[in-house]
Amino acid sequence: MATANNTVHDRVEQARVELTPTQLAVGLALVAALGFALLFVQEPMVHDSMHNFRHAAGITCH
């Protein structure tokens, strides 16, 4: 989609206009939570249930 905003800076500016801080916070929190849960949580129940996935994805594990 070719709009006038053609630098990274413009994109950041446009996002700042379009998004409310709440939306931004919720989005970041979702991504961070999902990423952390999938990659780094070591709690035994969680870790062992995702055991096969973590090996399949080549993520460092126990």
Binding site: L38, D48, S49, M50, N52, F53, A57
Partner: peptide, 18 residues
């Protein structure tokens, strides 16, 4: 800590979520 069925199931779901 969990049974193999859980591991298999959660692993598949995790793969999709990944």
């Amino acid at each position: 800590a969990v049974s193999m069925t859980v591991t298999n199931g959660v692993s598949i779901v995790s793969g999709v979520l990944w």
